[in-house]
Each structure stands twice: as C-alpha cells, then as structure tokens.
C-alpha cells in the first residue's frame, strides 16, 4: 500500500562548521500535494533540499521517502524523484539532444520493472520539448539562462517522477514561460505527482500551492494550508489621532510604522473588539485593511523570535 506521506523530514539539523543551516526541522509532505517552501534568501530552503537530495551530509535527523530512509545510493528512490536545482549546471560539450539522450539512458534499465503503465520517457520528452519550445540542436554552452532552465525542467519531468523537488524553478523564465510551467505543474498534480516547491516569490505560492511551510533563520516557523492562511484575521490598521501613542500602548500590537500622529500596526484581534477597545480615544481617521497573502508572509518574516 502506498504511503500517504511521501516525504518525512525528521528533526533535520545541518551546521556548516559553526554556521547554522537548518535546526531541528520536521516536515511531512502528503502524496499528491503541491507544498510551497518559502523563506527569504539564506533561510535554509536550499540546505533542506540539498539534505533531502543527499548532496550534503545531515548533522542530525532522518529523511524518509515513501516510508523508507533515503540513503544516498538508493537508486530505486532516486528513480521516482525529479529534481530541479536553483542553478542548472549541465555538460557544456553536449547539445540539448545529447543531454536529454544521456538522461534517458539512466532510466532505460528501469523500463522493465515499471509497475504502472506509464507513458514512454521518450514520448514525454518530446511533449515537453514542444511545450517549452526548445531547440534540441543547440549546444548547452550556447543556451541563455531561461533556456537552460527549460532543459532543467525537462530533465526533472521527463521520467515522470512521483516526487518533484523544485528549487526556485521559475528564476530565469519569462512570464509567458512561467505560466506554461505552472500549467505543467498542475498537470503533474492531476497525475498524482507530489511537488516540493521552494521559492521566495510569494505570488507563486498562492497561485499553485496547496500548503505552505515558512522557513526563517533555519527554523520552520509555520506550516499551513494556503487558503486558511489567506483567510486568517490579520489586518493592518492605520490610525490618525493625537493619542496615537496611547492607542498603540493600549493595544500592545506590533507597530509597522509610526509618523507624527499616524500609527500603523498589524492587528489580529477582531474588528469588533478593536473598535470597542479604541472607542474611548479621539480618532481623526481609521483605516482597516485586509492583509494579503504577501502581507502574511512579511508578517511572519519580520516577526521577532
């Protein structure tokens, strides 16, 4: 029976010498979901992904794929993973065709043991090359950053993996290609592929992800459904009043900005309760704004420990 949990990261800790990469990170990805892994640069996203892919050694912790510990030489697990690194580096001496042929050669030996009737790798490759409008005759060394990324995408997808691990996949792609790529991912999701999607572009998360994990300074600080995250009662309240300082002190909320008589703070109490609390003050103007998904993330990023 298939495991409901496809990636199970248990207490992952990674130190580079004395420098912390990630600390005690535990995370589970459910089969078939698109999981957004979001955080600012240096938060530990790539460290987590590199630890999953066994490119770096874990200081502590365990990573299970499909219920089995993923050790670096486990080719059976490697076979079901499609990986796209943030920076695609391929063999410059090869053409795109040569590179894709080379990639195919690693999967040929598994053809006979395929349990499910899957589309031929070569046929899927042809489809992807066409969708992403790539010229197979070009040499890898002559490719632009965007086209190199396209090759990386094809390499990650063409063997029809059960698990896709994508590290900042849209960097270098133009907006049209980004949309083509999102469609490809949604198609993969329909097929049942699980997608671990690391990014710092917030709009991507609301567009395609089911759940999101927010990482900051090497620690996973929040895991939530994308829908419920946007529905959260966080609002931004701007008050103009001679008593702005007192209002801020009374509410004890996190001040976003303060200028003369105007104070803006992030609010997570209900509008009704808020108005009751500040009713005793003289207020010139009040603006209550609903937080966007982007505000939500910024709120978590900037929150003190």
């Amino acid at each position: 029976m298939e495991n409901e949990i496809i990636i199970d990261i248990r207490n992952l800790t990674k130190y580079y010498g004395d420098i912390l990469g990630v600390k005690d990170l535990s995370l589970q990805l459910k089969r078939g979901e698109i999981f957004g892994f979001i955080g600012p640069n240096g938060a530990g996203k790539s460290t987590t992904i590199r630890a999953v892919m066994n490119l770096i050694n874990k200081t502590e912790g365990q990573i299970l794929i499909d219920g089995k510990e993923f050790l670096r030489d486990d080719t059976e697990i490697k076979r079901i993973i499609g990986y796209l690194p943030s920076e695609v580096n391929l063999y410059d001496d090869l053409t795109v065709k040569g590179m894709l042929d080379y990639h195919e050669s690693f999967y040929r030996k598994f053809d006979s043991v395929e349990k499910t009737a899957k589309k031929d790798i070569h046929a899927r490759r042809k489809e992807l090359v066409e969708v992403l409008q790539l010229d197979e005759n070009k040499k890898i060394e002559d490719l632009s950053l965007g086209n190199l990324k396209k090759v990386g995408i094809i390499l990650a997808l063409m063997h029809q993996p059960e698990l896709l691990i994508l590290d900042e996949p849209t960097s270098g792609l133009d907006p049209i290609m980004q949309n083509v790529f999102y469609d490809l991912l949604l198609e993969e999701k329909k097929r049942g592929t699980t997608i671990f999607y690391s990014t710092h572009i917030l709009s991507e998360v609301s567009k395609i992800c089911d759940r999101v994990g927010i990482i900051r300074k090497g620690k996973l600080i929040k895991v939530e459904d994308v829908d419920s995250l946007s529905d959260k009662s966080l609002t931004f309240v701007t008050v103009k009043s001679d008593q702005a300082d007192e209002i801020a002190a009374e509410l004890g909320l996190k001040i976003i900005s303060k200028e003369d008589k105007v104070v803006k703070f992030a609010n997570n109490i209900s509008d009704d309760e808020l108005i009751k609390k500040i009713a005793k003050y003289r207020i010139d103007k009040i603006l209550i704004e609903e937080a966007t998904l982007e505000d939500m993330f910024l709120h978590y990023y900037t929150e003190e420990d």
Binding site: T75, F106, F110
Partner: peptide, 15 residues
C-alpha cells in the same frame, strides 16, 4: 563544473 548536482540526482550510485 557543478554538474555533480545533476549526476547525483539520477539513479546511479556514487560507487
């Protein structure tokens, strides 16, 4: 050449 990131992810052992 940083191509090891690619080679590491395909189903082949380091040995």
């Amino acid at each position: 050449d940083k191509t090891i990131e690619y080679l590491n992810c395909v189903p082949v052992t380091r040995k």
